[in-house]
Amino acid sequence: MSAPHASRFGDPSRPAVVALGGGHGLSASLSALRLMTDRITAVVTVADDGGSSGRLREELGVLPPGDLRMALSALCDDSEWGRTWRDLLQHRFSSDGPLDRHSVGNLLIVALWELFGDTVEGLDLVGRLLGARGRVLPMASVPLRIEADVVGPAGERDVVRGQTHVATTGWRIAQLRLDPVDPPACPEAVDAVREADWVVLGPGSWYTSVLPHLLVPALRAALLETTARVVVVLNLTPDDETAGMRAVDHLAVLRAHAPELPVHAVVADPASVEDVDELADLCATMGAQLLVRQVRRGDQSAVHDPLRLAAALRDVVEDYLGDVGTRTGR
């Protein structure tokens, strides 16, 4: 199992990285990772049931394409050609008819799926059109539904179903599930995790974009068995589904849903950490290095800065290589 990691020592400037997530959070990590390497695979959640994606999913029975489209757009070639096609993919219609709020990219992706009958081939074709700096894959081969056990302010309990409802529940999420509970993972995504040098989890909607990857059995097994190093990038601010949660709580929830997952590094912005010592202690119990570094934009908005996040992730990689070099006498 050591062969896949020879690239860390042979060409550390081009690590093979798998980024897990969905939506704007995954776009943020991809925008940073593309500054580090061109060996990127985005593994994207497929549980969206709202907006254009939800309508196409319900009408045609396809995977929701929206988060896949956003990941492809984040990896587009930095040229006039790539940016033009990215803008076209992201363009939304505005009308009083059935096309209202549909994105061109969602329609294009679904059309290619119908033409070729192959989800991965269709996504690869869009990637070629964009000159994408990496590959985008779904985490599962079938559309998923997220379910959550939630607890209200007075201790009352309920079950919330559907990504949109889970994301906006307003109640504390106690436990997460997928329907179906044993979905088939995308084989190419499983292979990518097994062959990776690094796996990046987060940032993003913690319960509806980050944690679902750990609930797909074959993908979870790959994450536990891979020799890749796992990096968790914490969010800058809580969102609706994590209201009231601190940085340490996000990491604790991740550990609760996958206690056996090895985490090697955690990246956090100092303005988002209430108690650095508490977070450092939790990281230590997990065997993870904590890197507290400003990774938000200079205007202090709750948006990751690609250059700063890339620099932080590069430091994590270089620190690990230095530690390995020390241990091996290099």
Results as ranks from 00 to 15, higher is better:
Arg194Met: 11
Ala154Arg: 15
Ser29Val: 15
Thr45Ser: 12
Ser103Phe: 04
Ala280Tyr: 06
Trp85Arg: 00
Met245Leu: 14
Arg255Ala: 11
Gly152Lys: 14
Asp275Trp: 02
Asp319Thr: 15
Pro183Trp: 07
Asp323Trp: 15
Arg157Lys: 14
Thr119Glu: 14
Pro203Ser: 01
Val151Glu: 14
Gln175His: 13
Asp249Ile: 03
Arg128Ala: 10
Asp149Gly: 09
Val46Cys: 00
Asp315Met: 07
Asn235Leu: 00
Gly122Asp: 09
Leu234Thr: 08
Thr37Leu: 01
Glu278Met: 13
Val136Pro: 01
Glu80Ala: 10
Leu30Lys: 05
Ser13Asp: 15
Gly117Ser: 08
Ile40Gln: 03
Ser31Gln: 08
Gln175Met: 14
His264Leu: 09
Glu225Thr: 12
Val17Leu: 09
Val232Thr: 04
Ala243Phe: 08
Leu279Met: 03
Val230Ile: 12
Leu107Met: 10
Gly22Met: 08
Arg296Met: 03
Trp206Cys: 05
His257Pro: 06
Asp275Val: 02
Leu234Glu: 03
Thr41Asp: 09
Val160Thr: 03
Ser209Tyr: 04
Arg133Asn: 02
Asn106Pro: 10
Leu125Thr: 08
Trp171Val: 06
Arg296Ala: 07
Val210Phe: 04
Pro143Ala: 05
Thr37Gln: 01
Leu115Pro: 05
Arg14Gly: 05
Tyr320Gly: 07
Ser79Pro: 09
Val316Leu: 04
His304Arg: 00
Gly21Met: 08
Gln300Val: 11
Val231Gly: 01
Thr168Gly: 15
Arg157Phe: 00
Asp11Arg: 11
Phe116Trp: 13
Gln289Thr: 13
Val230Pro: 03
Leu63Pro: 00
Gly23His: 05
Val136Thr: 09
Leu112Arg: 02
Val46Leu: 09
Gln289Ala: 11
Ala16Pro: 01
Thr226Ala: 07
Val181Gly: 13
Leu279Pro: 00
Pro187Trp: 08
Leu291Thr: 11
Val166Phe: 02
Leu112Gly: 06
Leu123Trp: 01
Leu215Ile: 07
Leu33Ile: 10
Ala185Tyr: 02
Gly322Cys: 11
Val120Asn: 02
Asn106Met: 10
Leu261Cys: 02
Leu211Gly: 02
Leu313Phe: 09
Leu251Asn: 03
Gly322Leu: 12
Val160Ala: 04
Val263Ile: 14
Leu107Ala: 10
Glu188Ala: 15
Gly10His: 15
Asp100Leu: 06
Arg57Ile: 06
Leu291Trp: 05
Gln175Thr: 15
Leu68Ile: 11
His165Phe: 14
Leu234Gly: 05
Asp118Trp: 08
Leu33Met: 07
Pro15Val: 06
Asp275Cys: 05
Leu234Tyr: 06
Asp299Leu: 09
Ser31Lys: 12
Val248Lys: 00
Asp299Tyr: 10
Ser141Tyr: 12
Asp77Gln: 14
Arg246Asp: 12
Leu115Ala: 15
Leu107Cys: 11
Val126Leu: 07
